[in-house]
Write a protein that binds this DNA or RNA. Structure first.
Lengths: 238, 238, 238, 238
DNA sequence: CATGAATGAGACTTCATTCAT
DNA sequence: AATGAATGAAGTCTCATTCAT
């Protein structure tokens, strides 16, 4: 454990990214790192490769980042910043919930599949790897921030009565995000570009019917069935 | 019927697994490999670790498997054989579609989270890693076989009119599998055992409403209400 | 008079330290370097660390010193200048040899263990490292200068007859310095402050009896024994 | 009894050194490692160099040793085993204390300066390095074991009255070992072979007078003189 | 059949040092 | 005079994989 002396600096590895030049260098490295990580995944990506594409030496990368993992965290964070901003920028606040959901579905697919879908695979796969726990821990809050608008939409929908309230919010989120992730994986696996718009429209429609509040009679009947099932259970076990 | 899955094992590893002793050796390696891969993930698992737990030398592993990747494919295949068999064995063919769906949800969560959820993480995460493309390619048909019964159920449901037909079959599958995968990830990430039964029941109900044919549910519920009222009447007057 | 020691600094580092400002800069670097080298030892100390504590850039250090090694040599030289001056300043020239020896023992321990004993370890350990041969070569004359007063004392003692003359001067020095170095190492290794005064007093007494001239009869007898042993040897081998 | 050094090698790195071949390989690596560490010191020695001289790959070294540090500890331990055994093997238990001391001085110089004196510098210098704390910690008990016979000698001498009792045992040891270490350093620094026998004889004599009980020496010498005179008389008259 | 032993190919990381500004 | 920035050159260590016995 070299350098175990006294109070070394926690944040930057060696150089303070104060100047404009330095900041630009950091941006370059992050951009190149994104390309390599997206293309190869975390484990197969090497700092050597990143440095080569950057036209710099490996040491330069380590001048700005403490290591491969930190760079990857930064790359993912950077990407989330970007897509979160893009998501929010176009959010149709004025439109009805269903339109907002459709916007989210649309935007989500488009953003995650943009630029070769490499980042999608990186985030969805390595972000959960047990081998790199810190990565997962770093991704979680970013993802939460990214889905915050959706959660807000669902929550307000429940309050307003347009979205079903018989299901906890978290499950609603899974109901929306889960199928989308499936589609994303299929797209990534098939390696060929899919019709994002078409898929998004179809998915949006389906998801809405899945989470929308049912008609009043249907809702009442569902409640009736639930109570009946419960009563039967009680009678059977009591 | 373990090992019967598809046409894996295209070329024999190095020598033909002819004798019974050899077959037993293969089984032992696969079992040990499953433990190690489940515990550490693909990248962090080492052949050395597997050999050590096996009480054999690394070379022995390579006597029966062409390499780490092939062993992992075999481990996953073996596991899919197991859970697919378990899934089918208890399948309630005689019961109505909704019950079958609920069975599937239940069984799926239970099987994927069984024995420490390590295999769940392995399959869901590394199985999609771009770094090990062959792994993903090998997992896909296994997963298809695993979900075949569900697809069949959905397909027949559409034909019978109990499941909505306004959505292509593949999307329906995503609608079912996606939310479940979300739950699995949450369970894996939280590291603590969850109430599988409770979650399965809740999820089953929600998923059914999401995929059921709208009209059919309403009609079925109305019938239920009618029969219930009749029964009450009979009881009162009898 | 720091820096006056011997003929160090054969070639100017890079630019002539002409101005007063420059001289001050050199002093600052040497002071900071002493702290870092003392704390971490030669190998583990880094120019980066020194520059950071200095609040300057690494390049600045190289502006004034040809490299890490040269800086370290200078740091050690500076330190020797200091302790040599301190040693001589309080030297009790007027008092008898034994008192002078005791003063030396006292002062030596105090000086070498002062300020955390880091310099003690640096000089005793790294100063002899073969990996940094130049360091050892640079330290030797400094150490000689430091012990010059002791040598003088011993020499005059021999002449005066108060210190045994049956032992060459160099061996006498080892007889004095050796045990002290042992004590210093024990102190450094144990990491805890020792009772310097007590140890010095005890050591001083012992060392004096070890180097003091014996009574005349004892001395004569020792000479007799020596000649006898020599004669026996000659007879045996001749 | 080489190899008897405590329970080092807590867990082998990867391969169990069970077989004879393996044990031989370990011996070869340790021998080569000794040469390289002795020649270059700990920091400047590289595993690459060791492997090259061994005619093997670096990986082979790491197969048998967890790392550079562990190998160095083993090298030093091995060396101490050797010199401790050699020291004890020739120990003149039957002879008087002074002869034993002279034997020790002789043997110590010879052993530490044997084979190029590289190990001497390694042990004396790096063994105390703060940078490699584990090394120092590993060397200490070995050195204690090495000096155990000396300590025993001193202790018994005090009890018997032949060695001065006005000084604690530990200080006595410093009084003996310290000057010897000084001589060793001078020998190492000068890079040229010294007259070990001559130096040892001189040093032995001096050290004895430094630690012997004052009265006892005088008495012994008087007896010697008496017997010598008697012998001369006899020879003259006979 | 089993394996002990060896290793090639790299991965990540560190640092003293240079140079243009 | 000062330094921000870049890097060459090593260094330690890991592991899947091969092969002779």
């Amino acid at each position: 454990m070299p350098g175990a002396g006294a109070s070394r600096r926690a944040a930057p590895p060696r150089r303070a990214p104060a100047s404009a030049k330095s900041a630009q260098r950091v941006r370059d490295i992050v951009r190149t790192g994104r390309a390599v990580f997206a293309e190869l995944g975390y484990e197969r990506a090497t700092v050597t490769e990143i440095a080569q594409r950057l036209g710099a030496s490996e040491a330069t990368v380590f001048t700005y980042f403490r290591g491969k993992r930190e760079l990857c965290v930064r790359v993912i964070g950077d990407w989330y910043d970007e897509i979160t901003a893009a998501l929010l920028q176009g959010w149709p606040h004025a439109r009805p919930p269903r339109a907002q959901l459709e916007y989210f579905v649309h935007a989500h697919l488009r953003l995650f599949l943009g630029h070769g879908s490499g980042m999608c695979a990186l985030v969805l796969s390595e972000g959960r790897d047990k081998g790199v726990a810190e990565l997962g821990a770093a991704v979680l809050p970013l993802h939460r921030r990214y889905t915050a608008a959706l959660m807000d939409l669902l929550s307000r929908g429940q309050t307003a009565g347009t979205i079903r309230s018989d299901v906890p919010l978290r499950l609603l989120r899974s109901l929306v995000m889960g199928p989308m992730e499936q589609m994303l994986w299929e797209a990534v696996a098939s390696q060929k570009p899919i019709d994002v718009d078409g898929a998004a429209t179809a998915l949006g429609a389906v998801l809405w019917t899945a989470i929308a509040a049912p008609g009043s009679e249907l809702a009442a009947l569902r409640r009736l069935r639930g109570r009946l099932a419960q009563a039967l259970d009680d009678a059977a076990s009591g």
